[in-house]
Amino acid sequence: MKTLMSAAVLAAPVVAMAVAAAPSLSHAQDTGVYGTLGYAGSRAEGADTGAVQGRLGAKLTPHFGVEGELSGGVKDDDIDTNGVRSNIEQTHSAAVYGVGFLPVTPNIDLIGRVGYGNTQFKQTLAGVESKFDADSVNYGVGAQYKVDDKNGVRVDYTRQQFRDNDAADANVVSVGYARKF
């Protein structure tokens, strides 16, 4: 978590400059500040969890941007490990990304992203609850369809490769409403 906080502190000036520069970039096609709100389903070693996910980003050029992502768990799952049943839940997650955009049509962008995140989990085994967090390198692809100049739908696949051996790597699929400000 300390590593993620350090990364966020280092990234904050970049995002702040991007947000401040976005209005002056309005002459560039399809740049500016955007946000998404949606649902993310995660699968790791048989555990299917879910979270409400929000993103805030700045598209600095038509092909590059930065974004921050926060999510809070809303769906837990029961898993069996070596005959022992437990419950696992993602309580929250935070990440920062560099994002590449490939405009395919005026209304469709393909998206690639690479970033660093931290996720906290809660596990309940035999009535005993424990929490742990794990840092991850995240990468993925997606697409965004723009309904009009401000509104759209975004779908992503992200792979979370956790650095802590206690956490299984996760495949995350998300869908959400996208809004350009």
Rank of each mutant, 00 (worst) to 15 (best):
N107F: 06
V104G: 00
H92P: 00
E69G: 00
I108Y: 02
F121K: 05
I111S: 02
T105R: 08
G117V: 06
L4G: 00
A16V: 13
V19A: 15
A47F: 04
F121T: 04
F132L: 11
G127H: 04
Q160E: 14
L70M: 12
A44W: 04
M17W: 14
P106V: 08
S130C: 03
V128D: 04
K75R: 13
E89H: 07
V114D: 02
P106R: 11
G98F: 10
D166K: 15
D80R: 13
T91A: 03
F132A: 14
K150A: 14
V96W: 09
V96M: 14
H27M: 10
M5G: 01
T31F: 04
K75F: 03
D30K: 11
G100S: 05
T61R: 06
H27R: 12
D169K: 12
A28N: 10
N171P: 04
G176T: 04
M1F: 13
A178T: 05
G35C: 05
F64T: 06
A44I: 08
L70T: 04
V9F: 09
I108N: 01
G32P: 01
R163E: 15
A21W: 07
G41L: 14
D133H: 08
S130F: 08
Q120I: 02
A12N: 01
D109C: 08
Q120A: 11
D48V: 10
G57N: 07
R179E: 00
A143E: 03
S42W: 09
E67Q: 11
F132T: 11
E45R: 14
A20M: 13
P103E: 04
Q160C: 07
A40H: 00
Y34L: 06
P62Q: 07
A47H: 02
K180W: 10
G142C: 06
A12L: 14
A58S: 11
A168H: 12
D164M: 09
G65D: 06
A12Y: 02
F101Q: 01
A8R: 01
L37H: 00
R163W: 08
T105L: 11
S136K: 08
P23M: 10
H63C: 07
